[in-house]
Design a protein around this nucleic acid. Structure first.
Length: 209
DNA sequence: TAGACGATAGCCT
DNA sequence: GGCTATCGTCTAA
């Protein structure tokens, strides 16, 4: 699979509309990972959460710190953080520069390069067709980090540039009736806000509600 | 500089 | 459903 087949989402995708609308529209789009050896792995985004200014669950709620500084930077870049000392989670920075908002990519359906994803995750070999059906390779933000080999060193990566080792590309349009809007997961503040979106028909969603 | 804890996931019951 | 591994980051002092 060559990078020519992947058209990165333009920068304005990330800030022209409000973060909630951006989150919703990212469903069906494609996470593209180019490994050091030039091979690719891709996954279709099926679950996402929004974190906005004034949102008590946001890492930026208490202002700028060394960890969250990329949230304050230009839109369309990756914000990556380590959670529970174990899991690297991938966010896309949204809204205008200086406005610290982001969306957390919570689940993807593995598409291309699934044998690599399997190897990253399980440390063993598997056939593409087997790997493509394995939910653990994409159902959960920590799992995405592990399978796609994304860690804190990717923080700040430009997701709107096809030359980046990680970027987001255009994909399917998800019909409204196949999108579920619900509350976010694993947080203790802002628990009632319906700011999680997922694709109803996907078996790769981390938790259905 | 210490202490608490988190935008999780795996394994066990 | 419960327990916990594991460590960077924040907060307060």
């Amino acid at each position: 699979v060559g990078d020519r087949s992947f058209v990165p989402l333009p920068r304005d995708f990330y800030y022209l509309l409000p973060t909630l609308a951006v989150a919703r529209r990212l469903l069906g789009k494609v996470l593209v990972r180019r490994f050091d050896d030039g091979t690719f792995a891709t996954g279709r985004i099926v679950e996402i959460e929004a974190y906005t200014v004034g949102d008590p669950a946001s890492h930026a709620f208490r202002g700028r710190t060394p960890r969250n500084r990329t949230m304050f930077g230009p839109p369309g870049h990756a914000y990556i953080y380590l959670n529970y000392g174990l899991h690297y989670c991938l966010n896309a920075v949204t809204a205008a520069q200086g406005c610290p908002e982001a969306v957390l990519i919570r689940a993807v359906e593995p598409q291309c390069g699934t044998a690599s994803l399997w190897h990253n995750y399980f440390g063993s070999e598997a056939k593409e067709e087997v790997a493509r059906l394995e939910p653990r390779l994409g159902a959960g933000p920590g799992r995405i980090g592990k399978a796609f080999a994304i860690d804190r060193s990717f923080d700040g990566t430009d997701l709107a540039d096809a030359r980046s080792p990680v970027f987001l590309a255009s994909g399917d349009e998800i019909p409204d009736e196949d999108i579920v809007t619900t509350t976010r997961i694993g947080i203790t503040k802002g628990v009632d806000l319906p700011w999680r979106f997922y694709v109803r028909s996907s078996r790769f969603v981390s938790k259905k509600k």
